[in-house]
Design a binder for these strands. Structure first.
Lengths: 226, 226
DNA sequence: GGGACGGTTCGGTGCCGGCCGAAACGTCGT
DNA sequence: ACGACGTTTCGGCCGGCACCGAACCGTCCC
């Protein structure tokens, strides 16, 4: 072996079933406690603790101790994208194996978050609507139009500038079609949640569109919420 | 453990130093023989053989037997992107440890391929030139302009349509800045090689710009080749 | 045909890493 | 102060896997 490539170390973090389960859960963009993740993955608290230390040391997760709790979350949008991309490439879209899993699947297929932006049928529908309305264009690459940028900032306020791309086509697991990610996607999702147009169901990534949300989405984008 | 996520299996393929070295070598976009890869990574042929079987079975590589040779290459551009993204996220950009490595590094920093498109200083310079010339725009997302699309097809012919995005901002290892990937980036790179504007150095990803290439790049894009 | 060469199969070895339970630690609430 | 709770540390067990060398199989070339 010439020299150990950093690639292998990073991939090694995700190469374990338990750690992968943790990371996928954390794709909801929120902070989880060590115990929650342990129960979620079905391992002993001591096992989870060791895994979290690896993930934090590896730079994939950030943590904060609050009293007797240890909160962890994905380090940055880039880490989330990495995990999303890997999962998307790997996913053979296997059919769910239990009734409960099928129900969960159906709910999150309707509307969910993908780290910090909208996904599922809702995410794809909104993206399609943005394309129809001319806010977005994808013929020559995924990009906001000038009009779209103006309207979006009118709606959600100034978009934060930084290294992160403004828009990004994120491939949807269930729909197998791209939806809007990047800074713009995150801002739009934040707005939808802030306005109460959608609320999270339980602890997962699934969303439920509220009645006012249904109205707003129809008025703004002509989207019939699923 | 609830259920073994496909993510872990995929990451597991890249989680080994030898397999990671293989994949990074294959990022040059060409087909390698099993023996070449074994020597490159410094492992016994038998070890390499087993690793290649795993990578092929995992879907990351394709293979073809020719006589007593086993040729392998990356399965598709998506796989290459995945590996690139992981490597880019993981790379702490460590300084080279030997004189030979430093020389190699310097050569490939000037101009190289990134699977199937241009990277290194040349790749970034060309991308910057395309932005200056108004072929590309990145204010509202990385996309070709209408004029850019027209000029590019004039230059390299019709671009193949498919699921792969037309353009993509690929973060450069050495330059730490985005360069043009996607279908357009691949087409441009192919044109540069087809025209003999650049040739590969040795077996790596490094490129050398030829004299006619230097002229062409200056005339077309105003780029002074490194 | 014979030898060189690339690749594969097989057996054996050693190590790494994931898992748990028990015990200890610190925090929080009563 | 006490007990409940979330988390961590430690020890020990176990399985998996990366590695090699030797033998074997095909192909190519002289």
């Amino acid at each position: 072996m010439t020299t150990d490539p950093p690639l292998a170390a990073l991939a090694g973090l995700l190469a374990d079933a338990t750690r992968a389960t943790f990371c996928l859960a954390l794709l909801d963009g929120r902070a989880w406690t060590a115990g929650e993740l342990a129960r979620h993955a079905g391992v002993a608290p001591s096992t989870a603790s060791a895994h979290l230390t690896l993930l934090v040391d590896g730079g994939l997760l950030l943590q904060e101790r609050q009293g007797r709790h240890r909160y962890v979350w994905l380090a940055d949008p880039a880490a989330a994208q990495l995990i999303e991309d890997l999962a998307a490439y790997a996913a053979p879209a296997l059919p769910p194996r239990t009734l409960k899993a099928a129900a969960r699947e159906r709910a999150s297929a309707k509307a969910r978050t993908c780290y910090d932006h909208l996904a599922g049928r809702l995410g794809v529908a909104v993206t399609d609507a943005l394309l129809d309305a001319g806010w977005l264009q994808q013929r020559t690459g995924f990009a906001l139009t000038d009009a779209g940028l103006r309207q979006l900032t009118d709606l959600v306020g100034e978009l934060p500038a930084g290294r992160r791309p403004l828009v990004r086509a994120c491939l949807d697991h269930t729909e197998r079609r791209p939806h809007l990610g990047g800074v713009a996607g995150a801002a739009l999702c934040r707005h939808v949640l802030d306005q109460g147009w959608a609320v999270r169901i339980g602890t997962g990534r699934a969303l439920r569109v509220t009645d006012p949300g249904r109205v707003a989405l129809r008025d703004l984008f002509g989207v019939e919420a699923p």
